[in-house]
Design a protein around this nucleic acid. Structure first.
Lengths: 109, 109
DNA sequence: ACAGATGGTAAGCTATCTCTTACCGTAAGT
DNA sequence: ACTTACGGTAAGAGATAGCTTACCATCTGT
C-alpha cells in the first residue's frame, strides 16, 4: 500500500523527482529513463525500486525490457495527506490572524 | 521564496513532519514543540531552521521565547507543484489506458 | 544453443543527515 | 546588577543515502 511516509521520503531526492517527471509524460523503460539523467543505469534501477516501494510507480515486463509508469494512486495518497494538512494548518492560521489569543496560547503546556 | 525543492526535502524527515503536525494546530515555542518529541531541544531548533529555510514556517520573537507557526505560502507551493504534476501524470495515464500506442512510445528515444 | 540486449543486485566509497553535549547570547524578573 | 529561562550555534559521532563498477539472470533472435 502507498505509505505516505515512504512516498514523501521518495519525493525528497532530486534524481527521483527527475525520474518521476520523465514518467509523467508517459511510460518508459529503465534505459530510456537513465539516458536522460546524469546518473548510471543501476542508479536509476535503485531509484525505481524506492519509488515502487513507495507506491509511486508501477512496472510491467515487456519482453526483455521493463516498462515503468506512474501510479496515480500513490500520488493521490500524497495529495490527500497534503490537502488535509493544508486545511488544518490554514484554519489554524486564519484563526490566529483574526481572533488570536483565544484558542491556543496556553492550552499546550 | 519557498523553493519547492527545499520544501520537499524538508518534508522527508519524520521528526520534521512531527514538528509541522504540532504547528498545524497552532503556534508554539521551541520548548513546547520539543517537549512533545523524542529528540532534544537543539535538534528541534535545527529542524526549525531547515523548515524556515524551506519557507514552511514563520517565526517571531515573543519576549525571550520564539514562537513558530506554519507558513501557508510554503505549503501552498508544494500543493501547486503536486497538483500540476498530478494533472500531467493522470492525463498521460488515462491516455495510456485508453488509446495506448499512439502518443508516446517512440517519441522519446 | 549461442549471442546480444536489458536490467536487477552486490559491494564498497563518500557525502550528507540527524542526533547529542557543551557553550554562548539575549530578554525578563528580583 | 544578578539570576534564571529560553533558544540558537558549534563540534563531533553514528547512521544512512546515493553513486559507481562488477557481476549475474532473463528474454529475444539467429
Amino acid at each position: 500500500m502507498a505509505n505516505t511516509n515512504a512516498a514523501l521520503g521518495a519525493l525528497a531526492d532530486p534524481t527521483r523527482r527527475g525520474v518521476l517527471e520523465r514518467l509523467a509524460s508517459g511510460p518508459a523503460s529503465v534505459g530510456e529513463i537513465a539516458s536522460k539523467l546524469p546518473v548510471s543505469r543501476p542508479a536509476v534501477s535503485q531509484h525505481l525500486k524506492v519509488l515502487k516501494g513507495a507506491g509511486l510507480v508501477l512496472d510491467r515486463a515487456e519482453g526483455t525490457r521493463r516498462v515503468y509508469q506512474i501510479d496515480p494512486a500513490g500520488l493521490g495518497a500524497i495529495r490527500a495527506w497534503l490537502d488535509q494538512f493544508w486545511a488544518v494548518a490554514l484554519d489554524a492560521f486564519k484563526a490566529e490572524v483574526e481572533g488570536d489569543e483565544s484558542h491556543d496560547r496556553g492550552k499546550d503546556k
